[in-house]
Structure formats: structure tokens, C-alpha cells
């Protein structure tokens, strides 16, 4: 994977899972749930978001509960990369599990304005604003989380393990 480019969609700090998926939207079908995503801070986000957009946020993105809907909805909106100063740990795990790439880079939120082009270079492990030339480093995923992301998330991997497992109850299978 070399470099990818996209449009920055800016968010502030402490964007919690209730903001990403307000409680009242949790029982709705996905197409409806999307319409409420980020509602409290960015109403109508679903109308302006385009596949390939990249979220750029401040500290503690995704804090709060372990509800996976909050990660699922971002993926369903066509986003594959979330760049932020820091991310709550369960949210970060859920990102990898669903095939979203968490990019944690100190100082990154000041580099971009809403709508700026953003470049993520995985070879050099740098996030750059091509317009200003300013860049900050990040730690790329490696090992198992990298494999999970490359495979499109943890469930495709699980599906494969189940299909390959010999039949019979309680028989253990081996994870990578």
C-alpha cells in the first residue's frame, strides 16, 4: 500500500459514540441510522460525505461505549481512514475489526481545514497536507491488526476459519 489521497472532514475533540450514533438511531435500519450519524455536531453529514473522504479529528475520537454501530456507520458512509490526535481504545479496535484504518498522529488536526486535500503515505508513515507541505508522522499498523485490515476486517477471517473447520461441536480451530 503506497499513498492515498482524500478530502478531509474535520471534527473536534471527544467525539463520543453517542454523537456518532445517537441512541435513538441505534435500532433503525442502516440506511436510516446513517442519516443521524454525527447529528449533534454535524447535522446532514450523510448528505455531504463522499466515498473516500477521510475523517480528521482532535483528541479522544470515539470515546464512550463499546457499541460497534458507531464504527459500522462510518464505514457504511464510505470512509476507510480516520486520522486523529488520539482515539478511544475500544473504538480503535472496532475500526480494525471492521476494516477501517486508525491513524494516530500528534499535531495532525491543526494541519487541515474542512475540505482540504489530505495525503496518507504508508511507505514513509507520514500524513501530509499537499497544499501547505506540512506533514506529521504516524505509526502504521503492523502484525495481526494489519492483516485484519488488509483482509477487510475480522469477520471475513472468522468466516474462513469456520468454513475450513472440520464439522463437529466444540472442536477448536486455530487462529493466525
Amino acid at each position: 500500500m503506497d499513498a492515498i489521497r482524500g478530502r478531509a472532514r474535520k471534527f473536534g475533540e471527544n467525539i463520543d459514540t453517542d454523537t456518532i450514533t445517537p441512541a435513538a438511531s441505534l435500532h433503525l435500519p442502516m440506511e436510516e441510522m446513517k442519516k443521524h450519524a454525527f447529528g449533534p455536531v454535524a447535522p446532514g453529514f450523510y448528505k455531504t460525505v463522499q466515498p473516500g473522504d477521510i475523517i480528521v479529528a482532535d483528541n479522544n475520537f470515539g470515546c464512550g461505549s463499546s457499541r460497534e454501530h458507531a464504527t459500522e456507520v462510518v464505514k457504511e458512509l464510505g470512509i476507510r481512514y480516520i486520522v486523529c490526535e488520539s482515539m478511544a481504545r475500544i473504538y480503535m479496535r472496532n475500526c480494525v475489526a471492521l476494516g477501517l484504518y486508525p491513524i494516530l498522529a500528534k499535531g495532525v488536526s491543526r494541519l487541515f481545514n474542512e475540505g482540504d486535500e489530505i495525503e496518507i503515505d504508508f511507505e514513509r508513515a507520514m500524513v501530509t497536507n499537499p497544499k501547505t507541505g506540512k506533514a506529521v508522522p504516524f505509526k502504521p499498523l503492523k502484525g495481526t491488526p494489519k492483516e485484519i485490515f488488509d483482509g477487510g476486517g475480522i469477520l471475513p477471517l472468522l468466516k474462513k476459519l469456520i468454513e475450513e473447520a472440520p464439522p463437529g461441536p466444540g472442536k477448536p480451530v486455530t487462529a493466525p
Binding site: 463499546s66 460497534e68 475500544i90 479496535r93 475480522i154 472468522l158 477448536p172
Partner: peptide, 18 residues
């Protein structure tokens, strides 16, 4: 520690997690 639903499904089957 807490994890999400998809990862838990994986753990139920394999008993392992990164």
C-alpha cells in the same frame, strides 16, 4: 478489558485476540 461485537465473535470461536 472491553471489546466490540465482531472481535468477541472471533474470540468465541478461536480463544485468541491481538
Amino acid at each position: 478489558t472491553g471489546i466490540g461485537a465482531s472481535e468477541m465473535a472471533f474470540v468465541m470461536q478461536t480463544g485468541k485476540l491481538w
